[in-house]
């Protein structure tokens, strides 16, 4: 029956689209493979605060990735037998930066600045999720414009004019 094929094709398209949506979400939330098997969980459980390694969000647009020197500051003595740590050490010795894969990413035309967000009293967890529970860091929200607007447009009247303005993020 011709009609069967027609319906079949239709179902295939629908399933494909849904699968695509799911897969792209999965891909957004999937943790990328990093050059070093670094675990946030281990470090946070050891009592290290976010701002210890990522010190700049209070004063700069970026949170900052710790320098290799900073890693070695502790790992000169701690857990030096670990092959992953030895790899970090070899990066340090060769003077090469570690090519971390970026997890949370905004496109070029979006200008995100950590400083005012922290200044407004947001926590790291609000956007980055509970990184302390993650062995491998992954994105917990799809950081698209709708997500940003969820907060920005629900502000008090005197603030919303500025915060929901396009120029707040696009320059």
């Amino acid at each position: 029956m011709k009609r069967f094929w027609l319906i079949g094709l239709f179902i295939l398209v629908v399933v494909g689209v849904i699968a695509g949506v799911i897969l792209t979400r999965v891909q957004v939330y999937a943790a990328p493979e990093q050059p070093i098997a670094y675990s946030h969980q281990v470090h946070v459980e050891a009592g290290i605060q976010c701002l210890f390694c990522h010190p700049s969000p209070l004063k700069s647009p970026l949170a900052g990735i710790p320098s290799v020197q900073k890693c070695m500051g502790c790992h000169n003595v701690i857990d030096t037998d670990n092959p992953e740590i030895q790899q970090v050490a070899s990066y340090y010795e060769s003077g090469e930066p570690i090519p971390w894969i970026r997890v949370n990413l905004q496109p070029d035309f979006v200008y995100f600045n950590h400083q005012p967000h922290l200044g407004a009293g947001l926590n790291c967890e609000t956007c980055h999720g509970d990184v302390g529970q993650m062995d491998v860091t992954r994105q917990t929200v799809k950081m698209d414009m709708g997500w940003c607007l969820d907060c920005h447009i629900n502000q008090s009247d005197e603030k919303v004019g500025r915060l929901a303005d396009c120029l707040a993020c696009h320059k």
Binding site: G64, P66, V68, G95, P97, P99, W100, I101, R102
Partner: peptide, 8 residues
């Protein structure tokens, strides 16, 4: 996939 290279 963007690579971030911190200072050494």
């Amino acid at each position: 996939r963007m690579v971030l290279e911190p200072y050494v």
